[in-house]
């Protein structure tokens, strides 16, 4: 597979001395969906801005489609579609106006504009001005513009942040379609579910560095947490045999390596403990949990 994005030992130090990226190396091959995860302030957005040529690395090399994105902005703008993190759109422009403007400049036919807006449930609000859109709709519009503009590489900086679960699913289904079409994507995300659904490979960034690289999604499929809120958690610990159990006041937390193990214990709880006043939450691990696990492994 052809390497589309090569980030080789990139360090980015801002003029004020902030080290945003330290010796970061990331690769994305054609038709691959690569995810960059990490806590806030880890340097993900700085990395992405360097990949699209908005920032220049202090040291190291970045090549996108074989060219330096800072020096070849014109080429990068043609080849890369990008959605920024914040839902800033054009407040005084109608959804259709902005979409048509981007389409005309990118030589995208109007049929495609309509198709994308319909897919993302924006056709019904096409005459609304940007400031009249909800935050979720603004994020959808940013994605729509990236899809209308098209390009061989799609870079999405937290595409589903601020978006409700229904719109998230809509976005995921559209992105899965793009994936099927062989589009190369780099997605910055905090959402484990999103990563599971969309990504082939995951880089985890912490404090400006790549803390870990997961080539297989099974690595992040591990780790499911069950939280049981109950007055006397000590009485039900024996029901959670397959997990690592921690007991707090009014709360039991059981950690599992696999979802199936958690489900088996929950089945056990359902049989033996449902007559009790119990509230159960099953959670995928947070980014922080994954980061912690990676560090513990080391």
């Amino acid at each position: 597979m052809r390497e589309v994005v090569v980030v080789d030992r990139v360090t980015k130090i801002y003029p004020n001395g902030v080290k945003a990226n330290i010796e970061v190396s990331v690769r994305a091959c054609s038709s691959e969906v690569v995810c960059i995860m990490g806590p806030n302030g880890a340097g993900k957005t700085t990395l992405v801005r360097q990949i699209i040529g908005l920032l220049k690395p202090t040291s190291g090399v970045i090549r996108v489609f074989g060219v330096d994105p800072v020096k070849r902005q014109d080429y990068i703008k043609k080849k890369v579609a990008y959605t920024p993190q914040l839902p800033l759109t054009y407040p005084a422009h109608r959804v259709l106006e902005v979409s048509k403007y981007v389409a005309e400049l990118s030589n995208t036919p109007f049929e495609r504009v309509k198709e994308v807006l319909e897919e993302l449930d924006l056709w019904s609000v096409r005459d609304r001005l940007g400031y009249q859109l909800s935050i979720g709709q603004r994020k959808l519009l940013l994605l729509a513009l990236a899809l209308i503009k098209s390009g061989d590489l799609l870079i999405l900086d937290e595409p589903t942040t601020f978006v409700d679960i229904f719109k998230k699913r809509l976005m995921w289904s559209v992105l899965l379609e793009e994936r099927k079409r062989g589009k190369t994507m780099i997605i910055v995300s905090h959402d484990i579910e999103e990563v599971r659904r969309l990504c082939d490979r995951v880089y985890i960034m912490v404090a400006g560095r790549i803390a870990g690289k997961l080539d297989s999604l099974s690595d992040i499929s591990r780790g499911v947490e069950v939280k049981v809120y109950y007055e006397k958690p000590g009485e039900i610990t024996h029901l959670f045999k397959r997990g690592v159990v921690k007991v707090y006041e009014g709360l039991l937390i059981a950690e599992y390596n696999q979802l199936i193990e958690a489900l088996e214990d929950l089945e056990n709880l359902a049989i033996n403990g449902l007559n009790r006043d119990i509230r159960v939450l099953l959670e995928y691990p947070s980014v922080e949990y994954i980061v912690e696990s990676l560090f513990n492994k080391r």
Partner: peptide, 14 residues
């Protein structure tokens, strides 16, 4: 910063 970033999406030169 954020506005300029949103212009990065557009296929127009700086």
């Amino acid at each position: 910063e954020q506005v300029l970033e949103s212009y990065a999406l557009l296929p127009v030169s700086f």
